[in-house]
Design a protein around this nucleic acid. Structure first.
Lengths: 217, 217, 217, 217
DNA sequence: GATGAATGAGGCTTCATTCAT
DNA sequence: TATGAATGAAGCCTCATTCAT
């Protein structure tokens, strides 16, 4: 059997096992058995558990980014791009729950060097969303321009909400990718739009709770 | 040394270790050493690694919920309640990064029975937010009323965004709790308000994309 | 509470625990709890687990020997003495199943120094039975006298059968001490009597199975 | 080295260690070292201490039963069968003292599920002896027939005596298997024969002793 | 007389990883 | 290319035992 095929089988088994059991609880024995090969072969091809997990993260991250990119038409206006990107995102995570678990839950829970791997991907998506928000702001001729920091925070919030909704949709029966995407658009878009037009929500003058307890840890 | 004090030391050490290393990677040896006691004492008081982790989850969950409750004045209007709740939430997670890591990352990554423990807390917060959105809708005399399912999705998205932002704020220097809360309010409130007044965002008529790919549960 | 009473409580708890769990599986914690005292007190009075187990063996052994002695009237003829001794033996083991388990099962399973403790008691009983058989032989004017080694073997067999029957009676509902004793008398006495009168069972001339496979380990 | 060979080495080491130290006191470390392998290999092949002990019991039980069966010629009359069976029994226990210790002392001292394993074997031997006694009774045209319960008690006593004598022979130098068998035949056969011919030993009319103390089941 | 607090030592079990073929 | 055989290291947990009060 050609190497590439064997390797794919192993990675599939690994993603499934890591996604369901977690990095530490998954055993190389189980992965090898699920892949239908002997353990030394796994080591021959993928070198170590750590390498294998990293490879899983990279593969799933690239697949997710590719799916989102493929779902977006850059000719559309900003809201159309966001809408189709979200739909692609939720569709992909729903179709690859183990891969999504690897990226969203497991990779983030086991320190370096795995976090860095997902951060690369997440940053790519955040950058994409950031650009989208920037484009929307320009479309709206917002003036003065949104501060970069505000845009970053908004992108984080949007991506974070999307990630959280993906987990929720995966764990809740009868929530389709489309519904999840619509929920998020409903939730977010109008707020973004208000920002675009320089009508941010204003915190009340905070007289009663003046204790300076909002430090950064 | 009295038992209660020792127990607190152990739980503190456990939260720190679990939060930084993860459930499986944390070793009872390390926790005991960090607590400054011998391993058997940890077992005498906390019975097992599983029990210890559950106890950490419960303690941190209760502390977080209590902090949020204490930060909210039920006499305020809905947006005021949301604002102060978010501030309390981000303040608490910033001050207890390990506890937040236990709740947000580790407890969710290691299956039952831990997930159930956090789900209880999360549901409590989601219910609180759900009630808030409902109250806001009534304040706005929205008619027809928001569907329950929509409210649930919105609450999920809001809580998910908050959770994600808390991680982001913890990992990014110089982001204060207040800024995180303001970002989220900016992002979310206007969108919610639009919903209150029955002006939801409308997905475009979806002609170009087939309908097959968006319903994987 | 006076020391003697406390000590008896502890020994009672220990006999029960050792008899039911075995020497190694019994824990000092469980014994102390069953006795209703704290662990250090057990150590203060009984010094160590080994000492405690030895003390249990000695106490139960003495109680058993005393019960058998008390049940035998030395004025009776040999078969009467055997009969009443067996009845006393089976009655006592039935009334003290945990003590009997300590002596018969646990003490023999855990090497020195415990085996020596029971051997002392067992030898005492074997000696008693040996004397009985010798007396019976003299009563029967057996000539030539039974060889000492034969008598020893017979006494072993008798005591062994009694021990085995005691376990069987304890584990089988509805077998009374009297029945067990009668069974053993039926089984043994007539054989012994034949021996007394120099009519031993004769092994057949062993021509076919001459292989010298009857070594002594 | 092929698996079957290694497995036998491990079982041999385990029987020796369990027989001499007892189930709880034997350590997997010691067994592995005695077998000349590493501990993980023991677990790979035999799964757990409990499984290993059960496997030892089964192997030794089957070996003993097989040895007794092989030593008995079913064409012989009842006493000849008993005689040759006893010789085979004592020969085997003398040649496998550790195996016999496992069956007779250790398996019985450590509760379920081990007791059940030996009980199966013991019941097989008891059934064999019971059939023998029944056959002898028919050979002797005993009338009325022996009650089933009496036969059961007698078989228990005979097997118990044999078990006890096996231990005695193993612990006493210079007692050959043949001698042990002869002792037991002397002790038992004539008594059985008397029973066959309906001449049981009769307990004396029990006037002196109250009836209260002999029925604790 | 009595105990709450504490631990050194050791046992069972698992796992990532390698070697020889 | 592929694997049966094997292990060093480490983790969870328990227990007999002691100290300070």
């Amino acid at each position: 059997m050609p190497r590439a095929v064997r390797e794919r089988q192993m990675m599939d088994a690994a993603v499934q096992t890591f996604g369901q059991r977690g990095y530490r609880a998954a055993s190389m024995d189980e992965i090898a058995e699920l892949a239908g090969v002997s353990k030394p072969l796994v080591y021959l091809y993928l070198h170590s558990k750590e390498d294998l997990f990293s490879a899983c993260i990279r593969r799933e991250a690239q697949a997710l980014v590719a799916a989102v990119r493929a779902g977006v038409d850059p000719e559309l206006p900003a809201d159309g791009q966001l809408w189709s990107g979200l739909r692609a995102f939720f569709t992909h995570t729903a179709e690859n729950p183990d891969g999504w678990a690897v990226l969203h839950r497991q990779a983030r829970s086991h320190g370096e060097p795995f976090i860095s791997e997902v951060v690369v991907m997440r940053d790519e998506i955040v950058a994409f969303v950031t650009a989208l928000i920037g484009a929307a702001a320009r479309e709206a001729h917002r003036d003065p321009a949104l501060a970069d920091r505000d845009v970053a925070g908004l992108a984080q919030a949007l991506v974070g909400a999307a990630e959280s909704l993906a987990g929720w949709a995966n764990d809740t029966s009868d929530v389709s990718a489309k519904e999840a995407a619509a929920t998020l658009m409903n939730f977010a878009w109008a707020g973004l739009e208000n920002l675009m037009h320089a009508r941010p929500w204003q915190p009340p003058a905070d007289v009663s709770r003046g204790s300076a307890d909002d430090g950064t840890s």
